[in-house]
């Protein structure tokens, strides 16, 4: 019966996808993309990937959509009709798709519990993680400990994106609050934002620190945290928000997150372990794992939150 939901969602995704291909209004496409993302997030929930769902919703339906809209607002909405017939692309796509479908023919069936993918490494993660790491959420333990190095890479990637956006769009600080006139009319928004700002932040921190037990972790928390500040900026103006968190502070925070992560790794090295070997961080290996995961998740959260803000401010402040 989950399969039914799964299939319907896939069907909806397909419709959305085709609509995106056909639609000419870029803003419309953007909204459809947001819906696409939302639908795939639901699909992830159906497929038991709750952490992924959380992230996809926060990213796809959230920040990515906003960035796309900002870009359209900074450029233009209408898509020109392509000049040449897209015959070659169609051919390439067909060939690629055909190849992939050909490849699926020897794949284990969808959901087959005996598939090699589930039997080997993953199986032992599920068995050993509670003992070795003591964290119920296996995704977190794999993410932060077994494959903690990937996550360091991930933080670096997002940091790179921030550096890129800073380089490309810069970060213009608003001296005077020029949107003041517009803001004054947003009574509803302002009051609601006032109520929600602390709630969102608290919720973000909750997600940050409960990644061990449920879906969540540094990345999701970072995005939510940033969302709080985005709401603040929406309600009270960019200038006010920028005064609350100055750009230099954001830079420092973005860097600090990566550095915290790396420092945990180096510290475990100094304590006689391998890079990112958390168990040496405390006397008890499990406690060490906990501490390590806590710290690196903190690093991830800090970097992600500040990077999201850097990117968002970068796009939004581009308007003269």
């Amino acid at each position: 019966m989950e399969n039914l939901i799964n299939d319907v969602l896939l069907g909806l995704l397909m419709i959305t996808g085709f609509a995106i291909v056909r639609m000419k209004s870029l803003l419309g496409v953007t909204m459809l993309t947001s819906i696409y993302s939302l639908l795939s997030a639901s699909l992830f929930v159906v497929l038991d990937a709750v952490d992924v769902a959380l992230t996809e919703a926060a990213i796809g339906a959230g920040i990515a959509t906003v960035l796309m809209v900002a870009t359209v607002a900074l450029t233009t909405d209408e898509e020109k009709v392509p000049r040449h017939t897209p015959l070659l692309p169609l051919l390439v796509v067909m060939a690629t798709g055909a190849a992939l479908i050909y490849g699926t023919l020897d794949m284990p069936h969808h959901g087959d519990p005996l598939a090699p993918a589930h039997r080997y490494v993953a199986d032992s993660y599920l068995h050993d993680s509670p003992v070795e790491i003591g964290v119920p959420n296996v995704v977190t333990s794999v993410l932060a400990s077994y494959r903690g190095y990937d996550t360091l890479g991930e933080v670096t990637v997002i940091f790179t994106a921030a550096a890129g956006v800073l380089a490309l769009l810069g970060y213009r600080t608003r001296g005077r609050n020029i949107e003041a006139a517009g803001i004054r009319k947003q009574v509803v928004l302002r009051v609601i934002a006032k109520l929600f700002f602390p709630l969102i932040l608290l919720f973000a921190l909750y997600v940050q620190f409960h990644g061990d037990y449920g879906p969540g972790g540094g990345f999701q928390a970072g995005v939510i945290f940033a969302t709080g500040f985005i709401l603040y900026a929406l309600a009270f103006g960019l200038g006010t928000a920028q005064r609350l968190i100055p750009s230099q502070l954001l830079r420092i925070l973005a860097a600090a997150g990566v550095l915290i992560y790396a420092a945990v790794g180096l510290e475990s090295m100094l304590l006689g372990g391998k890079f990112l070997e958390y168990r040496v961080l405390a006397d008890d290996p499990i406690a060490g794992q906990h501490l390590g995961i806590l710290l690196i998740e903190l690093g991830v959260g800090i970097t992600v939150a500040s990077v999201m803000l850097i990117i968002y401010y970068g796009f939004v402040s581009r308007r003269h």
């Binding site: 700002f197 602390p198 932040l201 608290l202 909750y206």
Partner: peptide, 22 residues
């Protein structure tokens, strides 16, 4: 939790959002 609460309150204060309405 305590730390988080304090942090949020601090930020809210810094954001100048502390007044009757909140």
């Amino acid at each position: 939790g305590t730390v988080s609460t304090l942090l949020v309150v601090l930020l809210t204060t810094r954001a100048d959002l502390i007044d009757r309405e909140i």
